[in-house]
Deep mutational scan, measured.
Amino acid sequence: NRRVIAMPSVRKYAREKGVDIRLVQGTGKNGRVLKEDIDAWLAG
């Protein structure tokens, strides 16, 4: 149960899109989840 590193704005964006942020692979520094990662996850 790893802790997800993401800015609050990215967490909010994921919530609005209905994405469980824990399932998204972060590509930022130290595995940080970026807004682009959410978009990529939604695109498949």
Results as ranks from 00 to 15, higher is better:
residue 14 A to C: 07
residue 37 D to T: 01
residue 14 A to K: 00
residue 43 A to D: 13
residue 4 V to R: 08
residue 20 D to H: 06
residue 6 A to H: 05
residue 20 D to A: 05
residue 21 I to V: 07
residue 1 N to A: 14
residue 31 G to L: 05
residue 40 A to P: 01
residue 25 Q to F: 12
residue 6 A to F: 02
residue 44 G to P: 08
residue 27 T to F: 03
residue 1 N to V: 15
residue 44 G to Y: 14
residue 30 N to R: 11
residue 3 R to W: 03
residue 16 E to M: 14
residue 31 G to H: 08
residue 38 I to N: 00
residue 21 I to N: 00
residue 4 V to Y: 03
residue 8 P to Y: 05
residue 9 S to C: 06
residue 5 I to H: 05
residue 41 W to H: 09
residue 22 R to G: 08
residue 36 E to G: 13
residue 7 M to Y: 15
residue 34 L to Q: 10
residue 19 V to G: 00
residue 23 L to M: 12
residue 22 R to Y: 11
residue 28 G to N: 03
residue 4 V to F: 04
residue 30 N to K: 12
residue 23 L to F: 11
residue 2 R to N: 14
residue 11 R to Y: 08
residue 3 R to F: 04
residue 41 W to L: 07
residue 7 M to T: 15
residue 40 A to H: 12
residue 19 V to Y: 01
residue 21 I to S: 01
residue 9 S to D: 13
residue 13 Y to Q: 06
residue 33 V to M: 03
residue 41 W to A: 05
residue 13 Y to S: 05
residue 8 P to H: 10
residue 12 K to T: 08
residue 19 V to W: 00
residue 28 G to S: 04
residue 24 V to M: 06
residue 35 K to N: 07
residue 33 V to F: 01
residue 17 K to E: 06
residue 4 V to S: 06
residue 3 R to M: 08
residue 33 V to I: 15
residue 1 N to C: 08
residue 27 T to H: 07
residue 6 A to Y: 02
residue 11 R to D: 04
residue 40 A to N: 14
residue 33 V to Q: 02
residue 18 G to F: 08
residue 13 Y to E: 07
residue 7 M to G: 15
residue 40 A to Y: 11
residue 8 P to A: 13
residue 29 K to L: 13
residue 38 I to F: 00
residue 30 N to A: 10
residue 4 V to E: 06
residue 28 G to P: 01
residue 5 I to W: 02
residue 20 D to E: 07
residue 15 R to L: 13
residue 22 R to A: 09
residue 28 G to L: 02
residue 23 L to Q: 13
residue 42 L to S: 05
residue 4 V to D: 06
residue 36 E to R: 15
residue 32 R to F: 08
residue 8 P to D: 10
residue 38 I to G: 00
residue 25 Q to I: 14
residue 9 S to L: 08
residue 11 R to L: 09
residue 33 V to A: 03
residue 30 N to P: 02
residue 44 G to Q: 15
residue 5 I to F: 03
residue 42 L to W: 05
residue 24 V to P: 03
residue 1 N to L: 04
residue 16 E to K: 12
residue 18 G to K: 09
residue 33 V to C: 05
residue 10 V to D: 04
residue 39 D to P: 01
residue 25 Q to A: 12
residue 22 R to L: 11
residue 20 D to K: 05
residue 44 G to V: 14
residue 35 K to C: 07
residue 3 R to G: 12
residue 33 V to Y: 01
residue 20 D to F: 05
residue 24 V to K: 01
residue 5 I to K: 07
residue 18 G to W: 06
residue 2 R to V: 12
residue 26 G to N: 03
residue 41 W to D: 03
residue 24 V to Q: 01
residue 7 M to W: 15
residue 15 R to S: 12
residue 13 Y to A: 07
residue 29 K to S: 10
residue 23 L to W: 11
residue 34 L to N: 08
residue 43 A to E: 14
residue 13 Y to V: 07
residue 33 V to N: 00
residue 16 E to S: 13
residue 22 R to S: 10
residue 27 T to W: 03
residue 34 L to V: 11
residue 12 K to N: 08
residue 15 R to G: 09
residue 43 A to R: 15
residue 27 T to C: 05
residue 33 V to P: 03
residue 24 V to S: 01
residue 19 V to L: 06
residue 7 M to R: 15
residue 32 R to I: 09
residue 13 Y to T: 05
residue 40 A to E: 11
residue 20 D to M: 05
residue 35 K to W: 07
residue 42 L to N: 05
residue 11 R to W: 14
residue 18 G to Q: 09
residue 42 L to Y: 06
residue 39 D to V: 05
residue 11 R to S: 05
residue 20 D to I: 05
residue 4 V to G: 08
residue 1 N to H: 10
residue 16 E to W: 10
residue 18 G to T: 04
residue 11 R to V: 09
residue 15 R to P: 01
residue 36 E to Q: 14
residue 30 N to T: 07
residue 38 I to D: 00
